[in-house]
Design a protein around this nucleic acid. Sequence first.
DNA 1: TTGAAAGCGCTAACAC
DNA 2: GTGTTAGCGCTTTCAA
Lengths: 339, 339
Amino acid sequence: MASTIKDIAKMTGLGLATISKYLNGGNVRPNNKRLIEDAVRDLRFVPNEFARSLKTRLSRTVGVVIPELGNQFITSIITTMEDILRKLDYAVIVCDCRTDPRREKEAVTFLMHKRVDGLINMPTDSTGEHLKPALDAGIPIVLVDRILKSLSGRVSAVVVDNVEAAEKATRFLLESGHEEIGLILGNEGIYTTQKRREGFLNACAEFSLKPGEEMIRFSDYTLEGGYAQMKALLSLPKPLTAVFVTNYEMTLGAMIALNEAALKVPDDISVIGFDKLDLFGAMYPHLTLVKQPQNAIGECVAKLLLGLLSNGSALPLHQIITLPTQLCEGDSVRKLKRI
Amino acid sequence: MASTIKDIAKMTGLGLATISKYLNGGNVRPNNKRLIEDAVRDLRFVPNEFARSLKTRLSRTVGVVIPELGNQFITSIITTMEDILRKLDYAVIVCDCRTDPRREKEAVTFLMHKRVDGLINMPTDSTGEHLKPALDAGIPIVLVDRILKSLSGRVSAVVVDNVEAAEKATRFLLESGHEEIGLILGNEGIYTTQKRREGFLNACAEFSLKPGEEMIRFSDYTLEGGYAQMKALLSLPKPLTAVFVTNYEMTLGAMIALNEAALKVPDDISVIGFDKLDLFGAMYPHLTLVKQPQNAIGECVAKLLLGLLSNGSALPLHQIITLPTQLCEGDSVRKLKRI
DNA sequence: TTGAAAGCGCTAACAC
DNA sequence: GTGTTAGCGCTTTCAA
């Protein structure tokens, strides 16, 4: 049987309140402090979180709802967040909703039943409907990588500047003289997809270019998807001189498709990829790529939520943090003309 | 303020016990059942898990301790488990210990403080020291993909038949006439690495072959690692005719290295990879590979734990479940001789 | 600074 | 089948 503060009270002769106070960082007489510490050690006392939670109504637990665990961007963010949160004694409950809005809604309900103190969500459902119950219950929410207009001002969010990222990458290709540029995007309708598409089109417009719809491929942010769409791009009547792939998995897939087609990068085709500089930077040719600050994103999300959680009953000041991306130049883009 | 069963008692005129009983699946008079159901709906009653846990000493939560989130084998298993467990109302707390035994031990302590009902662990520490406290506390444990001899009989485990898997793959290469076979393994000292190495050597011995140490490369189960070790293998004085890569990420890395070296599979070199049939099966050439039953592993783990959890106070019957792998033949192995 | 006492919301004897 | 009651182990007034 595990020991309780009652046992400590008995052992030290002190009252429950004193012990509880000390355990929660309050001031007690040095002598009593020693007494309690000794008893805690001797009895191997560990506070019962159930009782504590029942009283405080706080679980020291946060829920994370994501579309898919098997994605390096998502897992790297979770790893960072989890690290920070666990250090502060917050447990992280992960719910993979498999890009299914119904499952996503269920996950939110589930986490509310588990009485999480806060919610982190990379939304699949773009209506934000699934978060309403949590919002009504006053549970602080931080969105990751995606913004939900319908929830504006009621949740915090951390995103990167997707439009600028795509503009920079596309502009780099255009300035190198490329005009036949393929674009491989994620799921249509998703925030990042829209923004990256927007950035791509912006840059093209700057150069008075209007890429055909067949050059802009929607996919699903998976390796298989990137592979398939790259194949599709290669089978286009008018050959591309360059391609911009907008996440890590799809970049990998696209590279595999290029290798299979025996196309040399950048001689036969130029490529700009996404994320995992350490990896793509180690390969030859070094891939030119858009690098998202994944660690910073995870940190921001964790700290934003922590801020909201410690905010007490004061009404939360929700913010949207936009982080910059970096265009890391490698050797995968051929200069078709002098810049 | 959330409603409680007291509110339901007031509203229905029933006693607390009746309501609690009904809520936990007990029998009540049909009329009262209706009464309670109506009240639950009207009051939007949700049982307070804190109070329930305090009383039952059960958290309906399980902890998962893994070496790394960014690994497809691990995340696919977690996804499957999480799905099954959540359906039964178990929350899954994930702790990524980054292949660090110290962090792993901390994770176990953390999860015990959170009072998880059970523990799932893909151990980094091969002594099993980190699990002792949980074992002493009587927390059911299921090991994934690795066995800890020191904990024999005190924990359950789900593994695949790694020796046989490596034997089959290696034998396939040998029977095709290959004699210069490279092997890319995971971290030295890890269970799966040892077993797969053993299987490889077994098969070689059957053919009276003793591969040089330089052909057996230890790595770390990452894409980067597979890439680097493939490069190393390619720089060996005596060229290989085949290579066997023992996980998904390293297979991907090895393929990239081969592509960079402009080596054609299987003409220049034969390859047997690991996992993700859907992916490697879509690529050309179709990779011949060892396929682990990832979903079945996740299912077994979840069900094994569930079994232990519902076992009540009866002393648990721990078992080791060994699942078979499959050798899926593609076009990536060249026949050097008629079989 | 300390201690007594109330109570968080639920479950589970136990008596009816 | 139902209701009364006594906790589970903690925090937190409040008075000393």
